[in-house]
């Protein structure tokens, strides 16, 4: 915080017969006693104008989008006829994708539970005050984000593609008990994917913030990869297809 005063080099001699004196003069239009220049603006009208502008912009965007694309309405609900594929809304389709690769309790309960727990405990795991309010904290933080993101895309795509080609569940059927194929192996693969960047940062003496950045990036990028895979690459029977080779004219965008 700089403490340069707008009015400088003026000396106000203390009058010996008075118990008070002018200490300094500050040019400004608000009470600034004991404070340096604070680089603030009045909320009225600047913040309100910004908000009105955003309000108009957002509403206009939704207006135009609503003119261009209709909300879907399928045939009336029929509990007797299952739609194919039956997909969860897009924000849960990542979980649905995960369900394909492991035991449903692991994919549907344990992992989401761990994620919510992790999210809520971030501020208590990293309680430093350093670099609050700075994007990616530092150049080092930015590098961690980029490398972790690239790594996670490769690792998660490889995991989905590998398990899709050589289903771990089917390959190990009869060879190992189901809890190995559906809990231990997929759990271990995910644990290694998540913990590898943490171990690397640990060895490089990374701060708690560095490790949080890596973990959060792994989480968010994995969620994006799983969601894209579940939303765009899964067709009838929740089978894997290229988006441009979807059978039966299935188009996931029609069901948004």
């Amino acid at each position: 915080m700089t403490n340069e005063l707008p009015v400088k080099d003026e000396v106000f001699p203390k009058d010996t017969s008075k118990s008070y004196a002018i200490v300094e003069m500050v040019r400004g239009d608000s009470p600034m006693v004991g404070k340096g220049p604070d680089d603030t603006v009045f909320s009225f009208p600047i913040v309100l104008l910004w908000e009105i502008l955003l309000l108009l912009g957002v509403t206009l965007a939704i207006f135009l989008f609503s003119l261009a694309k209709q909300a879907p309405l399928d045939a009336i609900a029929n509990p007797q006829i299952t739609t194919d594929p039956a997909k969860a809304p897009w924000y849960f389709v990542g979980l649905q994708e995960l369900l394909e690769h492991m035991h449903p309790t692991l994919a549907g309960i344990v992992i989401p539970g761990v994620l919510v727990g992790f999210l809520m405990s971030i501020p208590y795991l990293d309680n430093s005050r350093e670099f609050a309010g700075v994007w990616f904290s530092s150049k080092r933080g930015k590098r961690i984000v980029v490398w972790t993101a690239v790594y996670t895309v490769i690792a998660m795509v490889a995991f989905i593609a590998f398990d899709n080609a050589f289903s771990i569940r089917e390959t190990l059927r009869g060879v190992a008990p189901p809890w190995v194929a559906q809990w231990v192996i997929p759990g271990l693969i995910l644990a290694v994917i998540v913990l590898l960047p943490v171990v690397i940062l640990w060895r490089k003496k990374g701060s708690a913030r560095d490790i949080m950045i890596a973990l959060f990036t792994v989480m968010i990028v994995s969620a994006v990869v799983l969601t894209i895979s579940g939303f765009l690459f899964r067709g009838p029977g929740f089978e894997m297809y290229w988006p441009w080779q979807m059978p039966d004219g299935y188009n996931p965008w029609d069901e948004l």
Partner: peptide, 24 residues
């Protein structure tokens, strides 16, 4: 909306809850 889309999405989505051990 109570169409096929919503009915089966909710069926799929709420099925996940039933996988919780014990209380599911």
């Amino acid at each position: 909306p109570w169409d096929q889309l919503s009915f089966w999405a909710i069926t799929v989505g709420t099925n996940i809850a039933s996988y919780a051990p014990g209380a599911g």
